[in-house]
């Protein structure tokens, strides 16, 4: 059966349904697979810092570097001088560490690429979660196993709400959408 045998109107209808169907299929694929695809977001960083080496092998506490997490809304990325405390003399000649020292000595801040981020309409407070002994890994995943940090959890509203509901934390709108 040749396509050309159909009437012009019929042809248009079939063309439309097919296109819509294909578009819908693509869309469905993105929605279904997208979260997994998005959470494998592991951007390259200006310095090849390995959490696996520092937090995993050497068992350095998260809060040693991300020191404002328990005191503030924001966990904060450590300042360059935090690296220098150790690497002034530990493996000081390694190429990545030389890069850090160049930044420090040249007064140039390191421009890390954000891995974890929330949209502007959401307010998240680290201090309160740490006060409730929520482990960092709960949201950030097994960071101590990662050479390059990636997102293992999808930071969707459902993700936050599920834990809030489980642990009887407030679930009213103003808690996060303040």
């Amino acid at each position: 059966m040749s396509f050309s045998k159909f009437s012009p109107i019929a042809k248009m209808v079939i063309a439309f349904i097919t296109t819509a169907g294909m578009g819908g299929g693509v869309f469905a694929a993105i929605v279904y697979f997208g979260p997994i695809w998005l959470t494998t977001w592991a951007p390259a960083q200006p310095i090849k810092f390995s959490h696996k080496l520092h937090a995993g092998t050497n068992k350095i506490s998260c809060e040693y570097c991300h020191s404002y997490a328990r005191r503030s809304e924001m966990a904060s990325i450590p300042s360059a001088d935090r690296c220098v405390y150790c690497h002034d003399y530990i493996k000081a000649d390694a190429p990545e560490i030389v890069k850090v020292m160049d930044h420090y000595n040249g007064d140039k801040p390191i421009e890390w690429v954000k891995v974890f981020d929330l949209p502007d309409h959401v307010w998240f407070n680290h201090k309160r979660h740490i006060a409730k002994d929520v482990p960092c890994q709960k949201c950030h995943g097994p960071v101590e196993t990662m050479d390059v940090v990636s997102r293992t959890n999808e930071f969707s509203m459902g993700f936050c709400l599920a834990c809030h509901q489980e642990n009887e934390a407030p679930t009213d709108c103003w808690t996060c959408h303040t």
Binding site: Y68, E73, M74, I77, S79, D81, K108, E111, V113, K114
Partner: peptide, 18 residues
């Protein structure tokens, strides 16, 4: 997006974030 940290944390002990 980038997150840009300090080179030297200001006022050791104080909270530059809040």
């Amino acid at each position: 997006q980038n997150v840009i940290s300090f080179v030297e944390a200001p006022n050791d002990g104080a909270n530059p974030v809040d």
